[in-house]
Design a protein around this nucleic acid. Sequence first.
DNA 1: TTGATATATTCCAGATTGGGAATACCATTC
DNA 2: GAATGGTATTCCCAATCTGGAATATATCAA
Lengths: 122, 122
Amino acid sequence: MARAPVTSDVFNAIADPKRREIIDLLAGSGEQAVGDLVRTLRIAQPRVSKHLRVLRTVRLVSVARRGRSRVYRLNADRLKPVHDWVKAYERFWSNQFDRIKARAEQKAQERKNQPSNPTQED
Amino acid sequence: MARAPVTSDVFNAIADPKRREIIDLLAGSGEQAVGDLVRTLRIAQPRVSKHLRVLRTVRLVSVARRGRSRVYRLNADRLKPVHDWVKAYERFWSNQFDRIKARAEQKAQERKNQPSNPTQED
DNA sequence: TTGATATATTCCAGATTGGGAATACCATTC
DNA sequence: GAATGGTATTCCCAATCTGGAATATATCAA
């Protein structure tokens, strides 16, 4: 097999920085026509359309026709799985107290798993 | 250009579900030898080693030699950029109140941008 | 040394990508 | 209807990926 298609899920779709940028723009502005995005991002129009297609496929955005243009809007809900996944790691960097707690838990786990002494690091 | 290398940043590295699974395992157990991961994930050992290499490259994990085995540990800090990015969207689904507020903000933006009437949906 | 154990690397194939250029498509205006 | 404006799609290609199989490397044990 090869790499999973970028349209296979939201995690893959947001791996591209330009697509995240588009998402950010849509979040900040409610909605935008393709032309607006093209002007803001300053990249070729087909390129924008292609990114939008990927985002559409994973339902991160939806479109509405308005005259000649198409207005895109964000479906932020679709980002929830990403949020949920990464939120579980908040405790590792949040505040001093939690960080200490997290480290302690980790050390405990280690001791429970393999009482021994690591040699090299990285 | 082609798709960005999977080792180019954390967003790309975590696009693969198996790699996220590995991260989850390391988070839950403090540390694990490759063999442990192989047994838990029930996939071929070279496959695990290759995923670990990707994770190492983006510094999501670090290794320590211990006898014949190599023990991997999570560097959860590296997930912070992902967390920070997606956290900005929390308000879209968090609680009823915020959701209403978010919608209101969005509508306001829309009105400010293009007073008109959308036609088709998707 | 020899053998076994643990892990990493290499080689392979098929699949997929993102960007540029050209072009097609659709709605509006003249 | 023809010209125009706004978007989407197609065609192209070099770069990458993932997984399997085979193999290399390193450590420990007898």
